[in-house]
Write a protein that binds this DNA or RNA. Structure first.
Lengths: 189, 189
DNA sequence: CCAATAATAGACTGTTTGGTCTAATTAAAA
DNA sequence: TTTTAATTAGACCAAACAGTCTATTATTGG
């Protein structure tokens, strides 16, 4: 038994928008990708915008957990979970090749559409708060500001995987990110 | 006496594409923005793509020098010029609000168009080489890899200004980037 | 079984897209 | 001045765009 139609649509739209962007993805492309008729598509979603907003909250949302493995592990200090997660990013080939899907959509849509800005920010805040939690659950030098540090980490990881998408390699990511891990290790006590 | 037509077009296209992206900018928007007839536009540029590629090499190119003030100063060590430049980024409001124009176009177009990838990479390499030069002209800890460090710096600055465009503030940039400057200072001897 | 609703199917529509074309006008060269 | 080329002007075009509409088929509940 095949995947329910609505889910199939969300998967196809996530994939297409991730690579081509919102304005670079047409309804025709979406219909072709998931092989369903137009009537079905507009039965589940009233517009392209609503559809992509659903992708944000129902797909990108989940992808973030899959791409950045930041779940608290009892056996490890928070900062070590974080360091491991940063290294694991290099294993996600699509991430290193195309950058963060949330960051990409953010840059394209947030400046021109408030609804996207809000939806994207919700997910961003969840990610940042997870990192803050891990940092707080760590022995760090007393003057460390975990709020700004968490944003620094996200900025650096996202920045690293956004340098020349479609050619940025795992090797390049690892070299660049070494400086981030050096810095983070220097904050441990 | 007004600006030559071709220059006026490039200025308008830079501005529109910076904010709306390539696919988010239509020829109609461009014509309206610079108030010239279609015939003139297609007299100077044979297509939209060729026009935006000209913006890359003739406008973004120059904007990079204006946004990131990385010229070698005899009186300063390279690393100090670099640190000053990183702070000066916060003064460029549009940069902190909308992110780096090169990075934005790169993420949108490089994965789907080789010509853009090549044009953008040329400018990226110039920027990176400037930073490498500054780093080489500095007294740093002997094991410092200036190649990967230069990419780390670009990744972090671009990442910082790309977090939530249209709302990311100067204050936020300063807080985030403090960690970068801390790390760089720690590399000095 | 039957009625009501959900889902599928795709032809169709008005608008916008990037781009062409011919004619008129201005500027430069002879 | 006359000729040649550069530029301006915008009507026009086919294709692509997001979205609508009516009809039909599955599915579900009573």
């Amino acid at each position: 038994m095949s995947q329910p139609t609505r889910e199939k649509i969300l998967d196809a739209v996530f994939k297409l928008v991730y690579i081509n962007g919102y304005n670079g993805t047409s309804m025709a492309m979406i219909l072709k990708e998931c092989g369903i008729p137009k009537g079905s598509l507009y039965h589940y979603f009233k517009s392209k915008k609503e559809m992509v907003l659903s992708v944000v909250s129902e797909r990108i949302n989940l992808k973030m957990d899959e791409f950045y493995q930041l779940d608290v592990e009892e056996s490890k200090e928070g900062i070590d979970t974080l360091l491991a997660a940063i290294l694991k990013v290099s294993k996600k080939e699509i991430l290193v090749s195309y950058g963060c899907p949330l960051n990409r959509l953010n840059q394209e849509m947030s400046p021109v559409d408030k609804d996207f800005e809000v939806a994207i920010n919700t997910i961003y805040n969840r990610l940042r708060d997870k990192i803050i939690l891990l940092l707080k659950n760590s022995k760090l030098q007393s003057e460390t500001e975990v709020e700004s540090l968490s944003e620094f980490i996200i900025a650096t990881v996202w920045g690293s995987i956004s340098l020349s998408p479609a050619q940025s390699s795992t090797k390049r990511y690892m070299q660049t990110i070494t400086h981030l891990t050096n810095y983070l290790k220097s904050l441990k006590i």
